[in-house]
C-alpha cells in the first residue's frame, strides 16, 4: 500500500520541500498541505497515514517559536489531531514542528493537558547552525529502529533549549522511556557546548509521547538523507549510501503502513 504522508505547512514554514523529498525517498507519497486547507475544512488530517510538521519560522517566530501554530493545532484542529494520534498514526515534529507539538500540549502528554515542558532560547543567546551527534535513548519509539547508537545530525535553531517544568518532570520522562534522542559528542558522551548546542536539560534533543507514535526532535533528519549533506562528507571513505536521517523516515513509513492495515 502507498503511505500517504502530509507535510503540514503554514506562513513561514521553510523545510517542507526537502522533508517531502526525504519522505518520497523513504517510500511514502507526500503532499505539502497548507494548514488553512484543514482549518477551512477542505481536507481532513485523517485522510492521511503519516503527519510531519517540518521546520521553519512559522509566523516569523513572532511572540515565541511555534506558539501560534501550537494554538492553531490545540484550539482549531484539536479534535482532528487528537483522533489522528489516538489511532496511533505516526506524527513527527521537526524543529519548529517540535516546538508547535510541545507548546500545543501534544508532547509529552496528551493534547489538552497543560504543557509540562518548553523549548526556549539557546544558552548561547544566538541562532546555532551546526552539526552534533545524537544518542538513541528509547527503544519503545518505532522511529528509532535500526538507527546506530550514536550518529551525526545537524541542528539550526534559535530556541531549542528543552526545559521541563521541574527536575522531577524530566525524571518522569526518562522513567517512561519518552526521551528518544540526546545530544552527545562523537564518543557518545554528554559533553556540554557545542555538542549540546542549546543547553537542553538532560541533553534532550527529541522526545515522544507515552504511546511512542508522536516524535518531536530539534535536529533535522531531512538535512541528512543523502550522503553529500553530511558536514564533512569529503573526508569520509567510503561514503554511506544514504544519510542516517533517511532511516527515521523509513521507520515512520513502515510504521504508518502497519497501522493502516
Amino acid at each position: 500500500m502507498t503511505v500517504r504522508a502530509v507535510v503540514l505547512r503554514c506562513a513561514g514554514t521553510n523545510c517542507d520541500e526537502e522533508t517531502a523529498a526525504a519522505l518520497r525517498r523513504a517510500g511514502a507519497e507526500p503532499s505539502r498541505v497548507h494548514v488553512n486547507r484543514f482549518l477551512e475544512g477542505g481536507r481532513r488530517l485523517n485522510d492521511y497515514d503519516l503527519l510531519v510538521i517540518p521546520g521553519g519560522f512559522s509566523y516569523g517566530d513572532d511572540i515565541a517559536s511555534g506558539k501560534v501554530l501550537a494554538n492553531q493545532l490545540s484550539h482549531r484542529l484539536k479534535d482532528q489531531l487528537d483522533e489522528f494520534i489516538a489511532r496511533r498514526k505516526p506524527v513527527i515534529g521537526i524543529c519548529n514542528g517540535f516546538q508547535a507539538l510541545l507548546k500545543g500540549g501534544f508532547l509529552p502528554g496528551r493534547a489538552g493537558v497543560s504543557v509540562s515542558a518548553t523549548l526556549t532560547d539557546n544558552d548561547s543567546g544566538k541562532f546555532e547552525c551546526r552539526w552534533t551527534f545524537l544518542r538513541t535513548s528509547s527503544g519503545k519509539c518505532p522511529f528509532v529502529r535500526g538507527l546506530p547508537a550514536v550518529f551525526p545530525a545537524p541542528v539550526a535553531h534559535g530556541e531549542g533549549k528543552f526545559v521541563p517544568e521541574s527536575e522531577a518532570g524530566l525524571r518522569t520522562l526518562e522513567k517512561q522511556g519518552q526521551i528518544v534522542f540526546r545530544y552527545v559528542n562523537e564518543r557518545g558522551q554528554s559533553d556540554g557546548y557545542p555538542w549540546n548546542p542549546n543547553g537542553s536539560r538532560g541533553d534532550v534533543a527529541g522526545i515522544c509521547n507515552r504511546e511512542g507514535n508522536v516524535l518531536g526532535l530539534m535536529p533535522h533528519p531531512e538535512r541528512y538523507f543523502y550522503p553529500q549533506q553530511h558536514s564533512h562528507w569529503t573526508r569520509i571513505r567510503p561514503l554511506p549510501e544514504h544519510g542516517v536521517g533517511l532511516q527515521i523516515f523509513k521507520n515512520a513509513v513502515r510504521y504508518a503502513a502497519q497501522v493502516a492495515s
Binding site: Y59, G60, D62, I63, V68, Q72, H75
Partner: peptide, 15 residues
Amino acid sequence: DSVGETVRLGARDLR
C-alpha cells in the same frame, strides 16, 4: 510591526 499583527491572528485562533 509584524509581531503586533501576529498577536491579532493568534487572538482569532483562540476565538
